[in-house]
Nucleic acid binder design. Structure first.
Lengths: 190, 190
DNA sequence: GTCTATAGAATGATAGAC
DNA sequence: GTCTATCATTCTATAGAC
């Protein structure tokens, strides 16, 4: 047994549910989906699902955390500017395969603007981690940057988030290509 | 009388209501405000307000259209790259004075992702107009751009929209300064 | 742990009086 | 044109049986 102590089984099941929920939202899309709908597709009743996640917001936040984990946003980035950048664009490209997740992310991001919202902390921390990674990648350059690295990081994050909105509105937008071109402009030497 | 024909009075009143609603949302903020709340602050009953705007979504879309009008997004931009750019940054700076409007915009933008949503057309058109202006401003440059102008326009729009999200989450973010610095990077010669 | 049933609340829309 | 009253819906959260 790899896991011991209380909750070990509950945690495992929770993870399993999370994985399925993630798949469902990614594939079948998210249109302001209710707990009810997700519960059905996951094979539980609404109450059964809320048994593992105390509330709707916690469920959705957990789904996004799981996604970050799968996207390696929580682990160390690849070494070298080129590799880090490729991985970054890769994540953007894969987002275009999961509109439901992108929509969930965007929707929750706006709602979490309220400091009282349960996902407020998640988005604040995630932003910091992401921008920290970008700053780290920039630091590997030999040339100094024209703008303060933290400012560049904010701009890069904004580009990705903003392009998601444009893409959700019009799926013909090529998020990955646009991001790549933009990064090329920022750091042509890579 | 400047206006004749049927509805002339109704239209005028509608505009008046709109102006007040805009002020209220801008100053007192928007936290997923209900029609009820806006009606009260505007001095009407909920039903009275919906008499002028058929539905909640139409009301909110009308507010955003009004804002665009006041921001001169609907009229011709100033001539000359420098003037156009300054005006652009000015709009961003003024957005930082009206968090409620920015939140309303961001929230509706996500919801309008659904092609069936009443505001879908508004956001699609607004995006095109905005990007058209950016392309127009770029065209006034003597130097050719490294990226296709349409792609640059998407990136600029994304930066503004994305920074709004960051600023809503953390009001210490300086949207105008960041936008300005970014544009400086894009077109140093201006 | 999981389900059924229900509470409870919010809100948008509409009917109809004045 | 404006209001009061009400309808109708939707959804989350919880209580309680099994």
């Amino acid at each position: 047994m790899s896991q011991r102590g209380p909750y070990a089984k509950g945690v495992a099941k929770r993870e399993e549910i999370l994985g399925r929920a993630l798949e469902v939202v990614a594939r079948q899309g998210y249109r302001g989906a209710s707990v009810q709908v997700i519960a059905e597709t996951v094979g539980l009743s609404q109450a059964g699902l809320l048994h593992y996640f105390g509330s709707k917001e916690e469920l959705f936040t957990a789904i996004l955390r799981k996604r970050d984990e799968l996207d390696h946003l929580t682990s160390a980035p690849p070494a070298g500017p080129r590799a880090a950048r490729d991985a970054f664009v890769q994540v953007v490209a894969r987002n275009a395969e999961v509109p439901g997740l992108v929509e969930l992310f965007s929707r929750l991001a706006v709602e979490a603007v309220d400091p009282e919202h349960p996902a407020h902390g998640y988005f604040a921390e995630r932003g910091e981690v992401l921008r920290g990674m970008i700053v780290g990648a920039l630091a590997q350059h030999s040339h100094p940057t024209a703008l303060p690295p933290k400012m560049i990081a904010r701009v890069v994050q904004a580009v990705v988030d903003g392009l998601q909105l444009q893409w959700l509105l019009d799926p013909s937008v090529d998020m990955a290509a646009t991001t790549d071109a933009f990064l090329n402009l920022l750091a042509p030497e890579d």
